[in-house]
Simulated scan of single mutants.
Amino acid sequence: MSTVLSVRGLSKSFGGIRAVDDVSFDLAQGELLALIGPNGAGKSTCFNMMTGHLKPDGGTVSLNGTPITGLKPRRIWRLGVGRTFQITATYASMTVVENVQMALISHHRRVFALRPYAHRLYRDEALELLDLVGMAAQADRACAVLAYGDLKRLELAIALAHAPGLLLMDEPTAGMAPGERAALMQLVADIVAQRQLSVLFTEHDMDTVFAHAHRVMVLNRGRLIAKGPVAHIRADPEVQQVYLGGGTLFNALDTSTDA
């Protein structure tokens, strides 16, 4: 499979703190790749450099072979990079479908044609995206009354409105109940398979990571300490030390009460 995202020697410091230190990896088309690590490991800093929100001190980021290092976030988004955030950002006063319509209006460069018919623009397309994420039945509800898990599904539909080839998901299941986490990540995995979308996601819940990721990378204090298939990461002694003080991730999963 072709390489969609290529990162080489990515580095970033804040004062004397080396937040990201010489990180390199590739992400293939149709791959679901997890980036895990303790709080403060550098995961969000990596994401922010890939999307142009932070300028790297060193290293390069390429999308489909084209360098994107240092480009502005909107330019990177236009090249086909979508993102979801730890905390959902939707228009609470709008309906579910209107939120997706706004994303489609931006995608189709119709922002300056909003008045007075914005509510008519791309509604059918928006409903198709909502159907994809299991939210079509709630299309005309106000976002303000949605459950948190439904907001996460809506955010995914908004991200997909731009038809990205690469999707970066920063802790997509944060704040969700175990059943909701499993359902959302299964939905993402299904979309990856259907659309050959490439997804890089950060996550703290190991059950979610091991159940859905094709490969896993582990960051600790800004450096990649391990990367490979799930079984390799589970058995890696350094990863076990970082997460469990020497216990095993197999045992952690066996005794988990998560659904």
Rank of each mutant, 00 (worst) to 15 (best):
R74F: 05
N64W: 09
G42I: 12
T45C: 14
I36H: 13
G70R: 03
K72T: 06
P73N: 10
G52F: 14
G40P: 01
V23Y: 00
S13K: 02
F47L: 14
G40N: 08
N48D: 15
L71S: 09
G42D: 09
I68Q: 01
G52T: 10
H53T: 12
I68V: 14
I17P: 02
S44R: 15
Q29V: 02
F47S: 10
F25Q: 02
N64E: 12
G37Y: 04
T60C: 04
T66V: 12
N39Q: 13
P38H: 07
A41R: 02
L10T: 00
G70M: 11
M49D: 00
V61P: 05
L71M: 05
D22E: 07
G30P: 13
L35H: 02
E31L: 07
F25C: 03
V61R: 02
A19P: 09
T69H: 06
D57E: 05
V23Q: 02
E31K: 08
A28H: 06
L54Y: 15
A19S: 05
S13N: 01
M50D: 01
G9P: 00
D26P: 14
G65I: 11
N48W: 07
F14L: 02
K72Q: 06
A34Q: 10
T45H: 06
S62L: 11
G9K: 00
G15N: 01
D26R: 09
G59I: 01
K72D: 07
S13H: 04
G16N: 08
C46K: 03
N39W: 12
F14I: 10
L33R: 14
G70N: 10
T66G: 07
K12P: 03
K72R: 08
G65K: 05
T69Q: 10
P56I: 12
R74G: 06
T45F: 08
T45R: 10
S11M: 00
I68R: 01
R74Y: 11
G9H: 00
G9E: 00
K72S: 08
M49P: 02
N39G: 07
D26L: 07
I36E: 11
G15H: 01
S24H: 04
D21T: 08
I36Q: 12
G65T: 09
D57S: 08
K72M: 09
T66F: 12
K55S: 15
S13Q: 01
C46D: 03
T66Y: 12
G16R: 01
S13T: 11
S24V: 10
N64T: 07
M50P: 05
Q29M: 06
A34Y: 12
F47P: 15
G65S: 01
R74I: 12
P38D: 10
G9V: 00
N39T: 11
N48R: 15
D57C: 06
G30L: 07
L54A: 07
T69G: 06
K43T: 13
C46N: 04
L27T: 04
G30R: 03
D21L: 11
